[in-house]
């Protein structure tokens, strides 16, 4: 009996490094941020002033709104494109399908700073396409400014699409050929099949994917940082400048905004979880 106790003691000791890392770099900082968000600028007085400041300031509300809008718009567009494209994927042979998924997987790694850079050399002020099209006399991109809202959305959509395709594509595998046959035997048309069977089956997966894309865009920092620097008012960029820049250092306010962003992300993840459980009943 004593031997078992001693053994358990050693086992618990082996868990110590893990506990240290988790407390020191995951739970600890999150608690510190949460606590800090309820303190005044001096870091001593306990108050909800920081949250009041955010919700009273036009500037910070604008940042939240911009982040929400850009995340929603890029997620909606990417999901629509992915639903169509993933459906087209299924029309090819298995070999081609695997290759297409591989392309999506590979390009999904092309994000952040390198991606922004690529778009700058393509569509920036002296970008390849910008110059080329203006020389060819086509002013497709004449009114297009990469370093603006439209530019940002354009780049966000680019890095969202591969992810969306990879997430939605598997759910098409769930739609059995027999269902289509049964539906047409019963007199259903192609349209009525998708309207009454296909889309309802896909819907939880689409909603789940949407929430992941939304969270992905809300938390995106590198892409926006490289593209617009601090010229554009986004939640993630504001948090960064509040906690790390020398000019506008306000860690408590930054913490409060961090808490808001984290809540939005966790909300989206929670929603995704619920949706996943709906399609995958085997997940408890």
């Amino acid at each position: 009996m004593r031997k078992i106790k001693k053994q358990k003691f050693y086992l618990l000791a082996l868990l110590l490094p893990f506990i240290l890392f988790v407390v020191g770099f995951e739970i600890g900082p999150l608690v510190a941020m949460l606590r800090d968000s309820f303190h005044a600028d001096d870091g001593i007085q306990v108050t909800i002033q920081q949250y009041v400041t955010i919700f009273k300031s036009k500037f910070y509300l604008q940042a939240i709104q911009n982040s929400l809008v850009i995340s929603l718009v890029s997620a909606v567009i990417s999901v629509i494109i992915a639903v169509i494209a993933a459906y087209s994927f299924t029309k090819f042979s298995q070999k081609v399908q695997n290759r297409l998924v591989m392309i999506a997987n590979m390009t999904s790694n092309f994000e952040g700073i390198p991606l922004s850079f690529s778009f700058i050399i393509l569509l920036g002020n002296n970008g390849l396409f910008t110059l080329l099209f203006s020389k060819l006399g086509l002013d497709v991109f004449a009114g297009f400014n990469l370093y603006s809202w439209t530019g940002l959305i354009f780049v966000y959509i680019y890095f969202q699409i591969p992810l969306a395709v990879m997430l939605i594509y598997p759910s098409y595998q769930g739609i059995k050929k027999q269902w289509k046959e049964a539906s047409s035997l019963l007199g259903g048309t192609k349209l009525s099949f998708w309207l009454h069977i296909g889309i309802p089956v896909l819907l939880p997966s689409i909603a789940g994917t949407f929430s992941i894309l939304f969270a992905n865009a809300m938390g995106a920092y590198a892409t926006a940082y490289a593209l617009v620097g601090s010229n554009y008012n986004l939640l993630s960029l504001q948090i960064a400048s509040l906690v790390s820049s020398d000019v506008t250092l306000k860690p408590q306010l930054g913490s409060a905004m961090g808490v808001l962003l984290a809540s939005a992300m966790i909300g989206a993840m929670w929603f995704n979880n619920r949706m996943m459980r709906r399609i995958r009943r085997d997940l408890r």
Partner: peptide, 20 residues
Amino acid sequence: VAMLPYGIPPIVGAVGLIKV
């Protein structure tokens, strides 16, 4: 504990880390 970081973007994680 292990899946939580998946839902916390680095930008949020950094706030607390800087603080601590």
